[in-house]
Amino acid sequence: MPATELPGGARVRSVWDDAIERDGQMLVLAGNEVSLLSPVATALVHAARDGITLDALGARLVEDFGAPEGRDPGEVLREFVTALVQRGVIVIEG
């Protein structure tokens, strides 16, 4: 199932082989791909370190960063997750 259509109860988990953090940003190595994560993406992968449902993850990010202006938070979250799945930093569990 595409990450954009995942139900709120679906669990995601972050994975990486090495990481360096500076000023709220994080550089991660996952497999052969290196990605520079924004502060929101950095908070997302930290919150998903031990596995988390999309609903809980969305609530955590809204609490830390506020709701995205003029957008559905769930939709924005799924866009983040899709991009991070493509970079190998997030896996969908189960």
Binding site: D23, L27, L29, G31
Partner: peptide, 23 residues
């Protein structure tokens, strides 16, 4: 900035994942 520079540099490294301490 360090991370931005490393992000660009890492794309031009052979076998980055096999370096002793990677990033």
């Amino acid at each position: 900035p360090l991370l931005e520079g490393l992000a660009h540099l890492s794309e031009q490294i052979s076998y980055l994942a096999r370096l002793p301490r990677r990033l």
